[in-house]
Computed example of a mutant assay.
Amino acid sequence: MAAEQTGKTSEAYPMKGGDGVRSYANNSSYQREVIDSAKWLITEAIAEKLDVDNFVSSYTYRIADLGCSVGPNTFFAVQNIIEALQFKHQRQGLHSQLPEFQVFFNDHILNDFNTLFSSLPPNREYYAAGVPGSFHSRLFPNASLHFVFSSYSIHWLSKVPKPVVDKSSPAWNKGRIHYPNSNDEVVKAYQAQYTEDMECFLHARAKEVVCGGLVALIIPGRPNGMHHSQSPTTGVLESCLMDMARKGIISEEKVDSFNLPVYLMSPQELEAAVDRNGYFSIERIITELGAVPATQSQKISSNFRAAFEGVIMAHFGYEILDELFDSFGKKFEVEFMTKPMSGSSSIFFALLKRKATN
């Protein structure tokens, strides 16, 4: 039977590939720290929430990392999951039935899979496969996955909301590149796109995850009740782009037509999306897994370039990148010497379990 077609299209702006100085592989240490801090949550989730007796007959656990990028963070996350599964089997006396593991590394088709697979751990305990495509659509056969992991990924929207780049729309986001400090119509447009994308994400996973399987998410978001205007990082980038427009390096029209396809959801918004979907139960939400510390401004600046260079280059071209991010780094440091970033955004962990019937 042919794979399900959802008709969902998604824009692709992968992280900076390769292994150079500015690559995502060498500028994602903060993301690694958060993955490490979530290790005990993964171990506990598998120990308490995954009923391995239901899966013993399959002998093979299938694990997917959605939005894996180029490593090495994905390899640490996968190893944590596998160690937890092995420990679970041993603790239940299933030594003679230790399963094999198949790991699917997923990202957009433009992701640097060459770097990813050339840096695979040589002594890994799993069979590796790459799965190109957007996680807003179906990627795997029905009931084929036992554990899904995604970190620093699902805050990316499938596309920029159309109304924010439409001059005739009340949501036209002139002079802005994101929804913080924009009018309510812009915020509503982003919320609508997020709602649509999460519906597609959860619908696809509901088809792909076995009953009783787990989905673990590490999500850059905002605390419940925090206003959308409190997202200063994108404000610094916006200011740098407008400075370049005033200097005539880029046109104001070019800035007006640029918006970041990112939405910082709150835990309550995730809960509402899961409730609407109906196929998963929320087993756990940890709302303070991490917060961005102001003392690490330079590291965050480098990480920001590795993550957003692709989407910026696609719109403005390669030529402006060095000057833009040099300005960004300087402004960022000054901004957060006087206005600490801690508390303005947060990282939270969510564990979902596929319901047995629905």
Rank of each mutant, 00 (worst) to 15 (best):
residue 90 Q to M: 15
residue 91 R to T: 15
residue 92 Q to S: 11
residue 92 Q to M: 15
residue 93 G to T: 06
residue 95 H to K: 08
residue 95 H to W: 06
residue 98 L to K: 11
residue 98 L to P: 12
residue 100 E to P: 07
residue 102 Q to C: 08
residue 105 F to T: 04
residue 105 F to N: 04
residue 108 H to W: 04
residue 114 N to G: 00
residue 115 T to A: 03
residue 115 T to F: 04
residue 117 F to A: 01
residue 119 S to L: 10
residue 122 P to S: 14
residue 123 N to T: 13
residue 125 E to W: 00
residue 125 E to Q: 14
residue 129 A to S: 13
residue 130 G to K: 04
residue 130 G to A: 13
residue 131 V to R: 07
residue 132 P to E: 12
residue 134 S to T: 14
residue 136 H to V: 00
residue 136 H to Y: 15
residue 137 S to I: 05
residue 137 S to N: 10
residue 140 F to M: 14
residue 142 N to Y: 09
residue 142 N to F: 07
residue 145 L to I: 15
residue 146 H to Y: 06
residue 147 F to H: 11
residue 150 S to P: 12
residue 154 I to M: 11
residue 156 W to F: 09
residue 156 W to S: 09
residue 160 V to D: 06
residue 160 V to S: 07
residue 162 K to Y: 01
residue 163 P to L: 08
residue 163 P to M: 07
residue 163 P to D: 10
residue 166 D to M: 04
residue 166 D to C: 04
residue 166 D to F: 02
residue 167 K to Q: 12
residue 170 P to G: 03
residue 170 P to T: 08
residue 170 P to S: 10
residue 175 G to Y: 02
residue 175 G to N: 10
residue 176 R to L: 06
residue 176 R to H: 13
residue 177 I to S: 01
residue 178 H to T: 12
residue 180 P to W: 00
residue 183 N to C: 13
residue 183 N to W: 00
residue 187 V to S: 05
residue 188 K to A: 15
residue 188 K to E: 14
residue 189 A to R: 03
residue 190 Y to S: 07
residue 191 Q to L: 10
residue 191 Q to C: 12
residue 191 Q to T: 11
residue 193 Q to F: 00
residue 199 E to H: 13
residue 200 C to H: 14
residue 200 C to G: 03
residue 200 C to S: 14
residue 203 H to D: 14
